[in-house]
């Protein structure tokens, strides 16, 4: 007799909020700060209700001063706190790039190991909501370029619920990228869901003909594509990277050893990107395992347009993924 696991119906937004509440309850050093996280309830309503529950000392509304409040997070972390800094979108994080790249990522090294920065920075990323060229880009791959920080991309309810606590236990800066299109995603989550690891990739769907490697907001599209492909007799394995730095190359390579074909699907641009990095690593380590060259489905190299049909055309879509895989499988004959 099997015991049926208890689950709850929950959205990605609520899972993230539960993670925040849990962290605030468990560790008095944890506090949240950012633009409109308090009174407004968070620009994507993630922190709604937290001000009432935890008060203004721990749920801190900041002025529109990204560099100051991200840097203040760094200083507070060095001063013994466990700050969670929220930046509205990855595009706004560029106003704090100095603090993230020149301070958070370097302090431990510059100080010869004396000062680590246990800081978590959350922000939204990605397109799909007609927010045009200053609210839609996927720059997480850029951040993954930087040694000294970790880059997480929770794509599932379990990861939305579980990555934050693990990130807070990490002695070094961790950036969490939440795709804006995921907040309303609803599903079943184990009632006792908790912390998850933040350094491994996971196979979300097993398959034998091709490895579809992706992360974040594109995962659901890739799973749909895999389902469609299954209907036409192509067995696709889906790998969710989960973390872009560190990059779990071993899990990706293990999948390719099973399928001998790889397609990388990334909402970032392809030039100088995380998909380029991954492609290079596959070539370095599994060149002779590949039946066909690695293929990529990325965003078109334009700033994100506003008009819906143009935005859709710029982004990886289920049909472009399916088409790329069909060509690849067909090319083997």
């Amino acid at each position: 007799m099997t015991v049926e696991a208890k689950t709850v119906r929950i959205t990605y937004r609520e899972a993230m909020r539960q993670a925040l509440r849990d962290a605030l309850h468990r560790d008095p050093r944890v506090f949240l700060m950012g633009e409109d996280v308090g009174r407004y309830g968070g620009c994507f309503a993630v922190s709604k209700g937290l001000l009432e529950e935890f008060g203004p000392e721990r749920i801190r509304d900041t002025p529109l001063s990204e560099s100051a409040f991200v840097g203040a997070g760094i200083g507070a972390a060095m001063g013994g706190m466990r700050p969670i800094v929220e930046i509205m979108t990855v595009n706004f994080s560029l106003l704090a790039l100095d603090q993230i790249v020149n301070n958070a990522a370097t302090m431990l090294h510059m100080s010869g190991g004396q000062f680590n920065i246990p800081l978590v920075i959350r922000m939204t990323t990605g397109a799909g909501r007609q927010l045009a060229a200053q609210h839609s880009h996927s720059l997480e791959g850029w951040y993954a370029h930087i040694p000294g920080i970790k880059v997480l991309t929770p794509a599932t309810l379990a990861d939305a619920r579980g990555m934050l606590w693990t990130a807070l236990q990490d002695p070094d800066p961790v950036l969490i990228f939440e795709h804006g299109g995921l907040y309303n995603m609803e599903g079943e989550l184990a009632a006792d869901a908790g912390a998850v690891d933040i350094d491994t990739a996971v196979v979300r769907r097993a398959g034998t003909d091709v490895s579809l490697i992706t992360y974040g907001g594109t995962l659901s599209k890739v799973l749909q594509a895999a389902e469609e492909l299954a209907g036409t007799g192509v067995s696709a394995e889906v790998v969710d990277l989960r973390s872009l730095r560190p990059l779990d190359t071993a899990t990706v390579l293990a999948s390719i050893l099973r399928t001998h074909r790889a397609v990388i699907i990334d909402e970032g641009w392809r030039s100088g990107s995380i998909s380029a990095e991954l492609s290079a690593r596959i070539m370095e380590s599994a060149f002779y395992e590949l039946d066909v060259p690695v293929a990529r489905v990325c965003s078109a190299e334009v700033p994100m347009p506003y008009a819906k049909h143009m935005e859709e055309a710029a982004l990886p879509q289920v049909h472009t993924i399916v088409e790329t895989v069909r060509q690849m499988v067909g090319s083997r004959g």
């Binding site: 100051a68 203040a72 060095m78 001063g79 100095d98 603090q99 301070n103």
Partner: peptide, 19 residues
């Protein structure tokens, strides 16, 4: 980085105030 130390100082002070 000119000016880059100021946000860090603000954060160190915030940690002291909160504690």
């Amino acid at each position: 980085i000119v000016g880059g130390g100021l946000p860090v100082a603000v954060g160190l002070a915030l940690a002291d105030k909160l504690q």
